[in-house]
Every structure is written in C-alpha cells, then in structure tokens.
Amino acid sequence: MAVIDAGQYSQEELIKILNNVTDDDIEINGLCGQRYIACGWTKPKRLILKGVPGNNLAAFADGPEIIVHGNAQEGVANTMSSGHIQVHGRVGDIAGYGMRGGELFIEEDAGYRLGIHMKAYKAYKPLIVVGGSVGAFAGEYMAGGTMIVLGLNTSRPLVGPYCGTGMYGGEIYLRGDYPVKNIATNIEKVVVSGNELDNIIDYLHRYSIYFNYPLGKILDEPFTRLSVQNVRPFAGLYAGFVS
C-alpha cells in the first residue's frame, strides 16, 4: 500500500503523484481540501482518505473504491459510472449529480442538490444512502437509481424543499417522519414495511456495518417510497406548430 501525506502537497502536486502511483491500494493522510481526487479513474483502485477531500471527488470515475474518514466537500461522485464510496462524515452540495452507477454511502448529512438527475441503465443502478438528512432539491430530475435517507442523528428535517421535483424515474426511500410539503406534488408516496423492504434491506444492512450502527434501530421506523408512474412528465406540455 502506498501511503501519501497530503498535507505537504498542493492540489496539482497531489494529482500528479497519484497518477504515478502504481499500487492498487493507496492511503492519503492529512487531506485538506485538495480537489479532483480519483477524477475519471477507470481502475478498481482502493483509496483510504483521511482528512477532507476537496470538490469533485471521483467525478466521472468508473470503478474506484474510496473510503473517506472525515467529511467530503462538494460534488462527490459527480457523473460517476461505477465505484464504491463511503464517507464517514458528511458531504457538501451536489453529490451524485448525474450519477449513472456505483454506490455512495454517507454516514451523516448531505448538502443541497443531492443526486440531481441520477439515472439508471440496465446493469447500472446508482445508489445513495444518507445516514442523516438532505438539503433542498434532493432527487430533482431523478431518472433512475435509488436514494435512501435515514434521518439518524440529525437536527434538520429529513429532506429540504423541492425534493423530487421533475423526477421521472428511480426511487427515493425516506425513513420515519418527513415534511410532506417539501416533496414535489407529482410524487407517489407509499409506506413500505416487512417484505416490501427487500429491495433495500441489503443497503441498510451494509450501512449498519460500514458505520457500526444497529440495523434494528434503522428498521424501527417505517419507510416511505417516493416514485413516479409517468416517465413522460412533459409529454403534454407542448403543442407542435406548423410554422
């Protein structure tokens, strides 16, 4: 395993060093906001990050496995195709934007605009699990994949305003109480329990293992599934005109 002390390197230096590391396992200590780590990586390398990785961690990536011990800044997993990310802390805004595949597990809260325009395609099924709460616009324009918000140890409402606005695919699961007024009006809300949780029980189980939180406590509240039936939300918006 290659071990890098990031504290002495600028962002540009760190990216250059990472490009030249041949080890598949890399540990970076003392991160203090260096951006663009693992951007566009296509190899299944394993990264352990300590400190705070900067914006666009693993953006456009396809395959890396990243464990962050600390908080992550904006744009984690931006347009990611595949890979696995755990953040033992919280993340900033716009995590998982346009994410097509892979997994993002966040122990605590996520900022604004989480998972906007997430989309699924065949074997690509993106997953975001948030242990805490999420800010405004979560799942806006969501086209596929799964987002789960658990609301553990958070002082904020479970989801911020405009959750699921323009959504036309995928599913959002909310644990426990949530502010109904913050959910877009066209969203179908179904309370799921027991066997109906089979779709996500593996994800919940893994959250409990990754972050050492009892699964029983996660399951002691009901889950609500948000989805839309209409994959053509704007089909009736337009009138073709012979000009």
Binding site: N56, E74, G75, N78, I94, Y97, R100, R113, I116, H117, K119, A120, Y121, Y124, F137, E140, Y141, A143, G144, G166, Y168, G169, V231, R232, P233, F234, A235
Partner: peptide, 21 residues
C-alpha cells in the same frame, strides 16, 4: 438511442436548464 444515451428506451430524456454543478 437508449444505448448511447444510457437511459431506458421510450422515456423522455430531460436535460436540466443549468448544469447543477
């Protein structure tokens, strides 16, 4: 088209007005 866009066939393909990042 769905193959290259990597979205399910026959669903709308919506590009938001701004890049949200």
């Amino acid at each position: 088209v769905s193959l290259t866009r990597m979205i399910p066939a026959w669903s709308d393909a919506i590009s938001p007005a701004p890049h949200h990042d």
